[in-house]
Amino acid sequence: MRSGAVERVFREEYGRAVSVLVRTFGDIDLAEEAVQEAFTAALQRWPDDGPPPSPAGWIITTARNHAIDRLRRDAKRAEKHAEAEMIYNIPPDEPDDRLRLIFTCCHPALARHAQVALTLRLLGGLTTPEIARALLVPEPTLAQRIVRAKNKIRDAGIPYRVPRAADLPDRLTAVLAVVYLIFNEGYAASSGALVRDDLCAEAIRLGRMLRRLMPDEPEVAGLLALMVLSAARRPARVDPEGALVPLPLQDRTRWDRDAIAEGHRLVRECLRRASPGPYQLQAAINAVHTDAETAEATDWVQIVQLYDQLMALSPSPVVALNRAVAIAELEGPAAGLRLIEPLPLPTYHVFHAVRADLLRRAGRPEEAREAYKTAAELTGNTAERDYLLTQRANLLPSLS
């Protein structure tokens, strides 16, 4: 077990230390092993001696020394040994170091599941068992994915660098998508409990890191705002028994007002930049929801307008589904049903859940029961399934 002080430094500085050593030695495995050895040494020394004045500097210097020792012991790395002999001081952490590492993790040559695993491993410092549990993947499978991804980086000569300016927009999109996938898996887990707080926290931490490293990218601010505003509703999303509470029924006094204030500041900053993107628009939609003191006070006209912009900028069936929900709040469930029926989302449980709710509100209980059943069968999340089946049961005719 990590002690409290070492645990805090590990979470905050692991990615920085690995990125510095990757830049110095050009070897991801060597960097990881050396940083892990440094933290092991910290566990042995810090409880008695206390943390050093610069814990991050201590970790990087100790890891550097472990790496040099390892190179000296490895005859097959003679050239790197010669290079290492010339390294007397690790260069200070450069902002680009962690950018280089996250863009390497999210290189388009790697499959998305590998991008997610590597990002959690190298930037987040999660162990293979932790990532396997979080992503609900068998540990041997997850370990193979990480090994294959590292081998591909090495064998394909994937560069450890921030992409050229011309390539940055497409590559940044992949980086943001990976961070958002991590958050989504935490916020609405694909199976088991409703929320995985550790993944939500890790995604927000990565978002804050990207924000510090890329302060002029509005979509980075937009993604951070979206995650912070979504997470702000976390305390009210489940009742004391762990059952799901839908947005209209949530006790809004339990929302995290500090997080909402931060999210609103980020959204206002995005608006001032006047360069809207998908994450910024989704964050703005969440800002409208969190600005309403009650569900009835929600400004659905503004939400529909924002979804119109999102559909124009980044159209998808899921965006169309969410827009239809907002339309139904303004024009009634029949209008929402007309919009969602043609959508090609047969295996998306949320589609069937939305359809069930609209059918219920439209006074079509038999069809609603079937839709609730389909939605429940398609979700692996226990809390969502229980909620959907409860809604279905509430529509059953009385036997009396």
Rank of each mutant, 00 (worst) to 15 (best):
V304S: 10
D251Q: 08
W300A: 06
L330W: 06
L249H: 12
M214P: 05
D258V: 15
P240E: 12
P278E: 15
M311P: 01
V238K: 13
A243K: 02
P315V: 11
A274C: 05
W300Q: 05
A326R: 11
E269A: 06
G277I: 13
D308K: 02
A292L: 00
A284K: 05
A287W: 00
V304H: 08
M209R: 02
L213P: 12
G332L: 05
V238L: 14
G277C: 03
V301T: 13
L313A: 07
P218R: 01
P215T: 03
L223R: 06
T253H: 13
L330F: 01
R273E: 05
L306E: 10
E219C: 11
A328V: 11
R323F: 10
I303Q: 08
Y307T: 03
E293V: 02
L226I: 05
P276W: 06
S316T: 15
A243V: 00
S316C: 04
P276A: 10
C270S: 03
R323H: 15
Q302R: 15
A261Q: 05
R212T: 03
E329D: 04
V318F: 12
G336W: 07
A274W: 01
A326P: 15
P240I: 08
E219H: 11
S314M: 06
I340F: 04
P246C: 07
A287I: 02
A274E: 07
R268L: 03
R254I: 00
D216R: 12
L266W: 03
L337T: 03
A284C: 04
Q280F: 15
A225Q: 02
V267L: 12
L247W: 02
R211P: 05
A221H: 08
E329N: 14
R338P: 00
I260P: 03
A225R: 02
G263T: 01
G263S: 01
A283Q: 04
R234G: 13
A328S: 15
G336C: 01
P315S: 12
A236T: 01
D239F: 10
P215Q: 06
A231T: 09
L224V: 00
R338M: 15
R237V: 11
E241L: 08
V318P: 06
L310E: 03
P240V: 13
Y307M: 02
R254G: 13
E262T: 07
V304T: 10
S314C: 06
R338T: 13
R208E: 09
E296S: 08
G277T: 09
V325N: 05
A232Y: 10
Y307E: 09
A284Y: 03
M209A: 04
Q305S: 15
D291V: 00
A312F: 11
P240A: 13
G207D: 14
G207C: 13
Q250E: 14
L313S: 10
P333T: 00
P278N: 09
V319F: 00
I260D: 11
W300K: 01
C270A: 03
R212V: 09
P276H: 14
Q302P: 06
D239H: 07
R237T: 13
R254D: 11
Q305W: 00
A297P: 00
Y307P: 00
V318D: 01
M214Y: 03
L266E: 09
L223A: 11
P240R: 14
T298Q: 10
R234Y: 11
V288R: 00
E331M: 12
D239P: 11
S314E: 14
V228W: 05
R268I: 08
T298I: 14
V318Q: 12
I327F: 01
A261S: 01
E331S: 14
L266K: 12
E217I: 01
A274L: 07
G277F: 13
P235V: 14
